[in-house]
Simulated assay, not measured.
Amino acid sequence: MKASGKRSISIARMMLLVAAVAVVAASPRFLSAAYKFLSDSTVYAPGYTETGFESIRLGMRRAEVLSRLGPPLKTRPKAGSVVLSYSETHVDGFRVLGLDPAYQTYHHDRG
């Protein structure tokens, strides 16, 4: 009988674990995060690396940025400066550098 008692406790614990996982998996926050993770189709510039992007420091010149990351996916003007976009995505997460009129890095963002 003792073995049967231990087995029923194990089954009860397993059922509790399955129920807990089901509750977490059904939560809107979990489902949203899972959807973003599974459907992420981020496109990065050919020379982009996370290490290279993290090495960019404020005040760096455009030539130095380009030597570390290569050309961006997009370049666009913004209020007298230039924005270099190194990623493109429909979900959260982007890699953008802002360069002032002297082409020095003034903004470094990884959303």
Rank of each mutant, 00 (worst) to 15 (best):
residue 1 M to S: 15
residue 1 M to G: 15
residue 1 M to N: 15
residue 3 A to I: 15
residue 5 G to A: 14
residue 6 K to P: 05
residue 8 S to L: 15
residue 10 S to D: 14
residue 12 A to G: 15
residue 12 A to Q: 12
residue 12 A to M: 14
residue 15 M to V: 15
residue 15 M to Y: 13
residue 16 L to P: 06
residue 16 L to S: 13
residue 18 V to G: 05
residue 18 V to N: 09
residue 19 A to H: 07
residue 20 A to D: 12
residue 20 A to P: 08
residue 21 V to L: 15
residue 21 V to K: 07
residue 24 V to F: 06
residue 24 V to R: 00
residue 24 V to H: 03
residue 26 A to P: 01
residue 26 A to Y: 06
residue 27 S to L: 05
residue 28 P to C: 03
residue 29 R to K: 12
residue 29 R to H: 12
residue 29 R to L: 14
residue 29 R to A: 14
residue 30 F to T: 10
residue 30 F to N: 01
residue 30 F to D: 03
residue 31 L to Q: 12
residue 33 A to Q: 12
residue 33 A to C: 04
residue 33 A to Y: 09
residue 33 A to G: 04
residue 36 K to F: 07
residue 36 K to W: 05
residue 37 F to W: 12
residue 38 L to T: 05
residue 38 L to C: 02
residue 39 S to R: 02
residue 40 D to L: 09
residue 41 S to C: 00
residue 42 T to D: 01
residue 42 T to I: 05
residue 43 V to P: 01
residue 43 V to R: 11
residue 44 Y to C: 01
residue 45 A to F: 09
residue 45 A to G: 05
residue 47 G to Q: 11
residue 48 Y to K: 02
residue 48 Y to T: 00
residue 49 T to L: 03
residue 50 E to R: 13
residue 50 E to K: 09
residue 50 E to M: 09
residue 50 E to Y: 12
residue 52 G to A: 08
residue 53 F to R: 08
residue 54 E to T: 03
residue 54 E to G: 04
residue 54 E to H: 06
residue 55 S to L: 08
residue 55 S to N: 12
residue 56 I to Q: 03
residue 56 I to R: 08
residue 57 R to P: 00
residue 58 L to M: 06
residue 58 L to I: 11
residue 60 M to E: 11
residue 60 M to N: 09
residue 61 R to V: 07
residue 62 R to D: 07
residue 62 R to W: 07
residue 63 A to P: 01
residue 66 L to G: 05
residue 66 L to M: 13
residue 66 L to I: 15
residue 67 S to N: 06
residue 68 R to V: 14
residue 68 R to N: 11
residue 69 L to M: 10
residue 69 L to I: 03
residue 69 L to V: 05
residue 70 G to H: 05
residue 70 G to A: 11
residue 71 P to T: 11
residue 71 P to W: 11
residue 72 P to I: 04
residue 72 P to S: 06
residue 72 P to V: 07
residue 73 L to Y: 10
residue 73 L to S: 06
residue 73 L to G: 02
residue 74 K to C: 00
residue 74 K to W: 04
residue 75 T to Y: 00
residue 75 T to G: 01
residue 75 T to R: 10
residue 76 R to N: 00
residue 77 P to I: 01
residue 77 P to E: 13
residue 77 P to S: 09
residue 77 P to W: 02
residue 77 P to M: 07
residue 79 A to S: 12
residue 80 G to K: 10
residue 80 G to A: 09
residue 83 V to G: 00
residue 85 S to D: 06
residue 85 S to T: 02
residue 85 S to Y: 02
residue 86 Y to Q: 07
residue 86 Y to H: 06
residue 86 Y to W: 10
residue 89 T to S: 15
residue 89 T to I: 00
residue 89 T to C: 11
residue 90 H to S: 09
residue 90 H to E: 07
residue 92 D to G: 06
residue 92 D to F: 12
residue 93 G to K: 02
residue 94 F to H: 10
residue 95 R to A: 13
residue 96 V to N: 10
residue 98 G to A: 15
residue 101 P to G: 03
residue 101 P to R: 09
residue 101 P to C: 02
residue 102 A to R: 12
residue 102 A to M: 10
residue 102 A to E: 13
residue 103 Y to M: 09
residue 104 Q to A: 02
residue 104 Q to H: 08
residue 107 H to W: 11
residue 110 R to W: 13
residue 111 G to V: 14
residue 111 G to W: 14
